[in-house]
């Protein structure tokens, strides 16, 4: 009897905590979506379940800005960054774990410096450098720059992943007469998928969210990314909170959908790799 009571209390308590966490995490997003849909002046009356609704905010944004173009750019750049990150980080992490070249760890640590310098002050020298090599104002320039910032954490994640990888797996492939490259390609790559997926999500989100680098490195209107585009809309003085929230929703929804689907693999990938000590 007492035991059941305890179980019930525990369940209620946990249930309340869940509701609390969900409210805390999701209410701002709920309010974003709702505000984007509210008509005219009703926007300024803070009601929890508001009406009347209207698509005006969306219509204004879509008809008066290049939001579809920003979408294409953001997707291309985020996908490019993701692919490049995985392509660079995976072999790098593998080499770091399996080779014993001197100065390896120093290199990885040095990369952490990327996070130690204010981004805006880095962006300007990067821009100047990119102009010198003729790569400025291109999607590629953003892909390269974003990849620099995904690199340290990506290497850390994959490194954790490989170091838990029993060497016997490759060894058996070597015994079968494979070269290391073949062994990597045939045996290791398929097994790294969960880790790669983690890096994918991480890199995609970083690139998709960036504002500072697109602001400095991109000049053409037709190459702007979503966050930069949204910031420009904010600055068009008659843009209202309704349009801003509609634009924010349009930026977030695809990602939220993707994340709802991918988060479990993301966590699984992390737990198989980086955090396993």
């Amino acid at each position: 009897m007492r035991k059941t009571n305890w179980v019930v209390i525990r369940r209620v308590f946990l249930g309340l905590l869940f509701v609390g966490v969900i409210l805390y995490s999701l209410f701002p997003m709920y309010w974003m979506v709702i505000s984007g849909l509210r008509a005219g002046r009703s926007l300024f009356e803070p009601l929890l379940l508001p009406g009347p609704y209207s698509w005006q905010g969306y219509k204004t944004i879509l008809s008066l800005t290049d939001f579809p173009t920003y979408y294409v750019n953001s997707i291309l750049i985020a996908v490019g960054t993701t692919v490049l990150t995985v392509a660079v980080v995976t072999p790098m992490a593998y080499a770091l774990v399996r080779s014993r070249l001197p100065g390896m760890m120093l290199m990885v640590r040095a990369m952490l410096f990327a996070y130690m310098f204010p981004a805006l002050l880095l962006a300007i020298p990067i821009y100047i450098f990119l102009v010198k090599i003729g790569l400025d104002d291109t999607r590629l320039s953003l892909i390269l720059t974003h990849s620099t910032f995904t690199l340290p954490l990506g290497v850390w994640l994959m490194w954790g992943f490989f170091k838990n990888f029993p060497f016997e797996v490759e060894e058996s492939a070597f015994i079968d007469g494979c070269s290391r490259l073949q062994a990597i390609y045939r045996v290791i790559m398929p097994l790294t998928l969960p880790g790669v997926l983690t890096v994918v999500l991480f890199a995609f989100v970083l690139s998709w969210s960036d504002f500072v680098f697109s602001l400095i490195l991109i000049t053409s209107d037709e190459l702007k990314t979503l966050p930069y585009g949204l910031a420009s809309i904010d600055d068009a003085y008659d843009a209202n909170w309704g349009e801003l929230m509609a634009g924010s929703t349009m930026i977030c929804l695809p990602l939220l959908a993707l994340f709802a689907f991918l988060s479990r693999y993301f966590i699984r990938g992390l737990s198989m790799g980086a955090v396993k000590s």
């Binding site: 969900i22 999701l26 974003m32 924010s248 994340f259 709802a260 988060s263």
Partner: peptide, 17 residues
């Protein structure tokens, strides 16, 4: 997914919201 969702929002969006 719900509890982890804020992580994937762009900074600009977080600030506006």
């Amino acid at each position: 997914s719900a509890a982890l969702a804020p992580y994937i929002l762009p900074t600009v969006v977080v600030v506006y919201v």
